[in-house]
Design a binder for these strands. Structure first.
Lengths: 117, 117
DNA sequence: GCCCCCACTGACCTCAAGGTAAGTACGCAC
DNA sequence: GTGCGTACTTACCTTGAGGTCAGTGGGGGC
């Protein structure tokens, strides 16, 4: 099955289902979010995503790579250097996530307001 | 903590984070998706979301209700009747999910194409 | 000499989300 | 009188995602 190895559950009920499958993973949206602003080295990413362990960060990056969302470029230098960036697909995904982020922001504001009084 | 009982992890890193927290749950997007097209009874919903068990469906509906996404209306009739529908907030969420669904649809098409030829 | 930083990998463990199966109370159909 | 449909609840079990911790191999700082 040549092109299907990156697939999650399948078959998908709808597009939303397929999208969520890619997003699924405790830190993935945060990773994508971080990579939108800049291409990052592994260590930078770890600092930008507070709470991830190295193992899980690697894991999720690999999955995102397999799904064609992020691009990994390693430089074979003295201190190893790896740079992660969004692919075009990843960029489109990020754009698609925009409205959701905006909705969440409004919700955050509403919650905070409710707490404040 | 008057208004904070529906909260998930918190604090959120960004809006996306807050939105994903609401969406998080194996069947929630599918539930929201189903409710967008029509207000539904419990049994209908179960049929519309293939694979959910009654227990988990109830669970996730309660969480969505607590987060202000769905509205639950029970009629105290001879055979019990309960209707679920999206709140205004839920409707907005669904709208925000639109682009993501479209992205996923494109991805599904691309994957299928890759498999076919 | 010692330790941190780079970008990982692997063995092991935990915990909670979700699945399984059964029960509830009532009415209608056959 | 057996069984289905309504909308759940409860006790129990499984599974796997994610967390913890240690190791790798070399370079540079002090």
């Amino acid at each position: 099955m040549g092109a299907g190895e990156a697939l999650g559950k399948q078959p998908y009920v709808c597009g939303l289902d397929a999208a969520v499958d890619v997003i699924d993973g405790k830190w993935k949206v945060l990773i994508i979010w971080a990579l939108n602003h800049q291409r990052c080295r592994f260590g930078e990413l770890r600092r930008l995503v507070p709470g991830v362990t190295e193992k899980v960060l690697t894991q999720q990056l690999r999955e995102l790579e397999a799904d064609g969302i992020v691009h990994r470029e390693s430089y074979d230098t003295k201190p190893p250097k790896v740079e992660y960036s969004l692919t075009e697909l990843g960029d489109e995904l990020n754009t698609a996530l925009g409205p959701l982020g905006a909705w969440g922001k409004r919700r955050m504001a509403a919650l905070e307001e409710a707490v404040q009084g």
